[in-house]
Design a protein around this nucleic acid. Sequence first.
DNA 1: TTTAGTGTAATATCTTTCTATAACACTATA
DNA 2: TATAGTGTTATAGAAAGATATTACACTAAA
Lengths: 123, 123
Amino acid sequence: MQFDDKVPIYYQIKNYLYHRIVAGDLQPGEKLPAVRQLAVDLTVNVNTVQRALSEMIHEEILVSKRGRGNFVTEEPAKIAALKQRLITAYIQELYTQLHALKLSDRDIVTEIQHYIQTRGDQA
Amino acid sequence: MQFDDKVPIYYQIKNYLYHRIVAGDLQPGEKLPAVRQLAVDLTVNVNTVQRALSEMIHEEILVSKRGRGNFVTEEPAKIAALKQRLITAYIQELYTQLHALKLSDRDIVTEIQHYIQTRGDQA
DNA sequence: TTTAGTGTAATATCTTTCTATAACACTATA
DNA sequence: TATAGTGTTATAGAAAGATATTACACTAAA
């Protein structure tokens, strides 16, 4: 995995795991890879992985079971809430940025539709 | 101005100035506030402002005139290119993120339209 | 020619992030 | 009861970013 050097790595790992959970790649109750394994997979230090996981445990997206592993929450409602939070945050960010560039609401939708159409061949 | 502590301040200042230029708030050829004044306005250190400006000068969005000030490029083409670069980058980012959350192209457009509609009363 | 206003650069110090490394705590199982 | 696999914590050091401070270089105008 490649990281953006403008954002803390632990923060990007959080988002990466958010995505895997929301996308259903990691199911509710499923065990995550061991922290040391994640560190190897992501080519970062164990402490960096741990920092990401600690925050997600505090947010109750993950549940830590000492000696056994870290698990995705078994409460689908928490995952659904996370998903909606992420979607809204991303869209709000885009809207705010494009609005600051003086694009109208209609312009914004048009630009997005244009982007989607012209990339149809890539997907 | 308030900054996101997850991204370098100098980088956020660059984006802030990009926006003011693309939005036409700072016209081609217009003189920017003095670096020391910008530092006061943004409540950051002069060196932090300078770093943002240096990069923009290198990108030829700004032109430095020692002893006189920093000026927005007089070439509208460079500003237009910057605008398109920003728009594409923002949309690509949103698309990538929502796609990773398993939203379809149609879902993405729908979510955005919904966001725009339900915030109409706020604007 | 002096002075005020401007950009530019350097130093030292602080904070955050990341790293390498080691150690400790708990669980399950051979 | 060992041992392997797991989470957790701590220390020391490196790197990047931000700060305060000082100084230098250039321009315009009094």
